[in-house]
């Protein structure tokens, strides 16, 4: 067979690569046509925004691959962003303790999601929705409605520093990306997530524990949402109720844009990475052409629905 046509065909079978090419194309065209788009500062800014979505979507990718959707990522981000300044002990100038505590809380919330789904048999989407609502109410009661400013040194460094000219957030994203890719493709756990997402019955009869993997999965999702929350806090310098809300929809959209099936069982974080960049880029572009939040919501919703129709068609074949 002609090696070139094989390569082309392989490309079209690989959603991650396709999404990467799409990103490159959009960047190229936009840089040539829109003034200021191609500037290093602007592209770096787009990457910084993508890093946040990419990190939230790390947990979301794993959850969607295992056949669920985590609707509490936005709320966990908010919890982390608001609690971190409050719980960072003044005695620790580095701020590492505060970060560790905040991540422990985020992971714990995720674990509770998993426990509800695994032990109480609450459908995961409902469980995470209930958790989001619960946290939303709790936060306002605990922290009040006002914004809290961060003084934690590590967090500020994370949000503002640019070692070697690369934003620290982007470096963090690279670390997260490598970890998630390793978890998903190089550990037994990742294969178990994929198997459970594609056929839970067969996976269970092959000795894969649904309970244990559900717990780990939602704990991981909580952890990555916590990481994202810390990064957002560092970039914004303050946390407030609702700071995490925009990231729910964008995280799901980034995952499905990257070719992960919203019905579970098929996908990779390698697709979510360009998915997040593509999402941020298109959002930036439609902001330039002055599209409202309404259009964004319609666009993301239609995107999810369209990809659902495609996944569904493939699943039925």
């Amino acid at each position: 067979m002609n090696p070139v046509s094989t390569a082309v065909r392989g490309l079209f079978r690989s959603p991650p690569l396709l999404t990467f090419l799409l990103v490159a194309l959009v960047w190229l065209v936009a840089s040539l046509t829109l003034r200021g788009f191609g500037a290093y500062g602007h592209l770096r800014y787009l990457l910084e925004l993508s890093a946040v979505i990419g990190i939230v979507a790390a947990g979301q990718t794993l959850v969607i691959i295992m056949g669920g959707i985590d609707l509490s990522v936005g709320a966990i981000i908010t919890v982390t962003a608001i609690l971190l300044p409050l719980i960072s002990p003044a005695a620790d100038p580095s701020g590492i303790v505060g970060i560790a505590l905040a991540l422990a809380i985020a992971t714990g919330i995720g674990l509770l999601n998993g426990a509800g789904a695994a032990y109480l048999r609450v459908p995961p989407i409902i469980m995470t929705l209930a958790m989001a609502t619960f946290l939303q109410g709790l936060l306002v009661m605990v922290a009040g409605g006002s914004a809290v400013s961060v003084t934690n040194a590590s967090v500020i460094w994370l949000g503002q520093a640019r070692p070697l000219g690369i934003p620290a957030g982007v470096i963090l994203w690279i670390v997260v990306a490598i970890s998630v890719l390793l978890i998903l493709h190089r550990t037994p756990m990742g294969s178990r997530f994929l198997a459970l997402g594609a056929n839970p019955v067969a996976a269970r009869l092959s000795g894969i524990s649904i309970t244990r993997n559900t717990l780990v999965l939602y704990a991981l999702s909580g952890f990555f949402s916590g990481v994202a929350g810390i990064l957002i806090l560092g970039m914004n310098r303050q946390g407030y109720v609702g700071i995490g809300d925009p990231y729910l929809l964008t995280s799901i959209a980034a995952v499905v844009l990257g070719g992960t099936s919203i019905l579970g069982g098929r996908g990779t974080y390698a697709g979510t990475i360009p998915g997040a960049i593509l999402l941020v880029t298109t959002t930036a572009l439609i902001t330039i052409v002055n599209a409202s939040p309404g259009w964004r919501s319609i666009m993301f919703g239609s995107l999810i629905l369209a990809l659902l129709l495609i996944s569904g068609r493939e699943a039925r074949r």
Binding site: S191, A195, N199, V201, A202, A203, L205, G207, G265, R266
Partner: peptide, 18 residues
């Protein structure tokens, strides 16, 4: 098809599952 195999996954993946 429903209980023994994960149909869309590869032969190798299925063989390695347990």
């Amino acid at each position: 098809k429903k209980e023994g195999l994960v149909l869309p996954h590869s032969i190798a993946t299925n063989l390695l599952m347990p």
